[in-house]
C-alpha cells in the first residue's frame, strides 16, 4: 500500500533522535528574540514577495498596464484607419502582429484592446468595491432586522444568473463601455458585500471597536475608520480576483456582439473576428487570445498569492 506509506510519511508525528540537536547552555540566548518583529503588513508583504508565482503575476500585470498605456502613443499606426490594399497581412517587420480584414494594424489594436479590457476589469471591480463596502458594512454593523432585509434582497439578486442579467440588460441598452460596466455591476457587487459583512460582523465586537465606541465615536467613524481598514485583507483578495472575472465577462460579451462597437475593439471582439478567418489568418485570433490569457493568468496567480499572504493559517 504505497498510499498508506505516503500518508504516514506526510503526517509523521514520531520523534526520532535525529530531530534533536545538542546545544551548549552558553550558546542559547533566551533573552533575545531571534526573529525580527514584524507588523502585520510587513509580514504580509514579506510573504507575498517570497511567492515567486504571485510576483511573476504582479510583474506581468505591471508590464501589461504600461504597454497598454504607452504603446498606442509610440506605435506609428492607429487602430481605426482602414487600408484596403493591405488586408489580412501576416506578421512582418512593419506590422508585428499582421493586419486585419480592413488592413488595420493588429499590434496597435491589441494594445487598444488591452486598454479596454484592463479598464473594464478595474472599473467593474472598483464599483463592486464601493457598493459592496457600503452595503456590506451597513449589513454587518447593524445586524438584526436591517441585516435580514438587506441580506434577503442581496440573496434574491444573487440567485438570478449573473450573465443572463448582463446579457438581457445589454440587449436592451445601447452597447458601450459604460453600459457594459453598469450591467456587470448591477449584480456583481453582492459577493463583495457578503465578504465585507462577514468581516465587519466578526470585527465589530473586538476591543478596539468597543473602545472607540466608549470614547464617543460615531457609527460611521467606527465602520469606516476601524472596521473596514481591518477587513482590508479579504476585501483586497476579492477585488483582485474580481478583475479577471470582469475581463473574461467583457470578452465573452464582445464575443456575442454585445461589447464595445467598432472601430474600437476589445480582445473579445478581435477573437470573435478572428474565429471566422481562423483557417486562413490564424494570427488575427492568436494575438488577442494570447494576451487575454496572460492577463487572466496574471491576475489569478497574483490574487491567489495575496490570499495566501493574508491567510494566517499558512503562516510559518
Amino acid at each position: 500500500m504505497s498510499s498508506t506509506h505516503e500518508l504516514s510519511k506526510m503526517r509523521s508525528d514520531e520523534l526520532t533522535p535525529d530531530l534533536f540537536e545538542k546545544l551548549d547552555r552558553d550558546d542559547v540566548r533566551v533573552d533575545t528574540v531571534s526573529r525580527a518583529s514584524l507588523t502585520a503588513w510587513q509580514d504580509i508583504r514579506m510573504r507575498l514577495t517570497s511567492n515567486k508565482l504571485a510576483m511573476f503575476g504582479f510583474f506581468l500585470i505591471i508590464v501589461m498596464v504600461l504597454l497598454a498605456i504607452f504603446m498606442p502613443f509610440i506605435w506609428p499606426f492607429d487602430h481605426y484607419t482602414n487600408n484596403l490594399t493591405n488586408t489580412n497581412k501576416p506578421p512582418d517587420a512593419k506590422h508585428w502582429f499582421g493586419t486585419d480584414d480592413l488592413g488595420r494594424d493588429m499590434f496597435e489594436r491589441v494594445w487598444m484592446g488591452a486598454r479596454i479590457s484592463l479598464f473594464v476589469g478595474v472599473a467593474a471591480a472598483l464599483i463592486d468595491l464601493v457598493i459592496g463596502i457600503i452595503y456590506g458594512g451597513i449589513m454587518g454593523y447593524y445586524g438584526g432586522k436591517i441585516d435580514e432585509v438587506m441580506n434577503r434582497f442581496a440573496e434574491i439578486l444573487y440567485s438570478i444568473p449573473y450573465l443572463l442579467v448582463v446579457i438581457l440588460l445589454l440587449v436592451v441598452m445601447e452597447p458601450s463601455l459604460t453600459t457594459i460596466i453598469i450591467a456587470m455591476s448591477i449584480t456583481g457587487w453582492v459577493n463583495m458585500a457578503w465578504i465585507v459583512r462577514g468581516q465587519v460582523m466578526q470585527l465589530k465586537n473586538q476591543e478596539y471597536a468597543l473602545a472607540s465606541k466608549a470614547l464617543g465615536a460615531g457609527e460611521m467613524r467606527i465602520i469606516f475608520r476601524h472596521l473596514i481598514p481591518n477587513a482590508m485583507g479579504p476585501i483586497l483578495v476579492t477585488l483582485t480576483l474580481t478583475i479577471p472575472n470582469a475581463i473574461f465577462t467583457e470578452a465573452f460579451l464582445s464575443f456575442l456582439g454585445l461589447g464595445v462597437q467598432s472601430p474600437v475593439a476589445s480582445w473579445g471582439t478581435m477573437i470573435n473576428d478572428g474565429v471566422g478567418g481562423l483557417f486562413y489568418y490564424p494570427w488575427r485570433l492568436f494575438f488577442p487570445a494570447i494576451f487575454l490569457s496572460i492577463v487572466i493568468f496574471a491576475f489569478n496567480v497574483f490574487g491567489d498569492g495575496l490570499r495566501d499572504a493574508f491567510d494566517p493559517k499558512l503562516r510559518k
Binding site: F252, V275, F297, N300
Partner: peptide
C-alpha cells in the same frame, strides 16, 4: 492554473 487562465473563447478555436 493553466486551465483557469485560458478561457473557452480562446481554448476552443485554438484546439480547432
Amino acid at each position: 492554473v493553466i486551465g483557469l487562465a485560458i478561457p473557452s473563447i480562446v481554448l476552443a478555436p485554438t484546439m480547432q
